[in-house]
Simulated assay, not measured.
Amino acid sequence: MDRRRVTMPPRIPVSPAQIDRVVTQFYARVRADPILGPVFAAHVSDWRPHEEKIGRFWRNALLLQRCYDGNPMQVHRAAGDVKPAHFTVWLALFDAVLEQELPTPLAQAWSALAHRIGRGLRYGLPSESTMADAPFLGEA
């Protein structure tokens, strides 16, 4: 049996440099966004490591590189202030950056994957009605 490493073709043929540009431009928009900016600011104090980590996430998802080992669902649930409705804003900002930074076929393919991931994260969070029924535990 041949045990040489088999290289899988990328899911979406973008370059690492394109991933880095998309991530950088996206988080610049997030920081300026009146809805997402405060949510992220509550959790991210040093943007460079965060952007590097998310770059690794996308390299894993798009290029099939094994360079990310986080658990996005766990992180978003543990944050406590990430709401399902935030993903609509997140995806709109992300799509705008993809359209700006990539050729249309690549932007559309990456967007489709981002929307699938966003749906999964959104459904994994407590719903707004569930959160409304939870006991109040202090200041927000």
Rank of each mutant, 00 (worst) to 15 (best):
I35K: 13
D46S: 14
R31S: 11
L64F: 10
A92E: 06
L106W: 02
D95Y: 03
S45A: 12
V89A: 06
W90Y: 13
T7K: 15
D69N: 15
P9C: 03
H76Q: 12
N71V: 00
C67L: 10
G55E: 05
G55Q: 05
G70D: 04
L93H: 11
E52M: 09
H76P: 04
G37R: 14
F40L: 10
L93Y: 07
K53H: 11
G37Y: 14
G80Q: 05
S15W: 03
E101C: 14
Y68P: 01
A32G: 14
P105T: 05
T24E: 10
M8Q: 15
D69F: 13
V6S: 05
W47R: 07
S15Y: 05
T104R: 06
I19C: 02
E51D: 14
E51L: 15
Q100G: 01
M8I: 09
P34W: 11
R56E: 10
V82H: 03
V6G: 04
G70Y: 02
R48S: 15
D95Q: 12
R59K: 10
P49Y: 07
E52K: 02
P49K: 13
R5D: 06
V39P: 00
H86E: 11
R66E: 11
C67W: 02
A78T: 13
L91V: 12
K83S: 08
V97K: 00
A28P: 00
H43M: 08
A61D: 07
S15K: 10
A85H: 03
P10H: 06
A107I: 01
A96E: 08
G80V: 12
V89T: 15
P13I: 12
W58S: 01
G37D: 15
H43Y: 07
L98M: 08
V23D: 00
L106C: 03
R48Q: 15
S45P: 01
R77Y: 02
R21Y: 05
H50V: 07
N71P: 00
I35Y: 07
A85Q: 05
P13F: 13
R21D: 14
Y27L: 03
R11K: 13
K53D: 04
H86S: 14
L98A: 04
V14N: 01
V75Q: 11
P84K: 09
G80E: 06
V14C: 02
P84M: 08
W90T: 03
I12D: 00
A32H: 14
L62T: 02
L93S: 05
M8D: 08
A79K: 08
G70A: 13
Q65I: 01
P13Y: 12
Q25N: 14
I19K: 01
A41R: 15
V89C: 10
Q100D: 03
D95L: 08
R66F: 08
V39K: 13
V6F: 00
R11W: 10
D69K: 09
G37A: 15
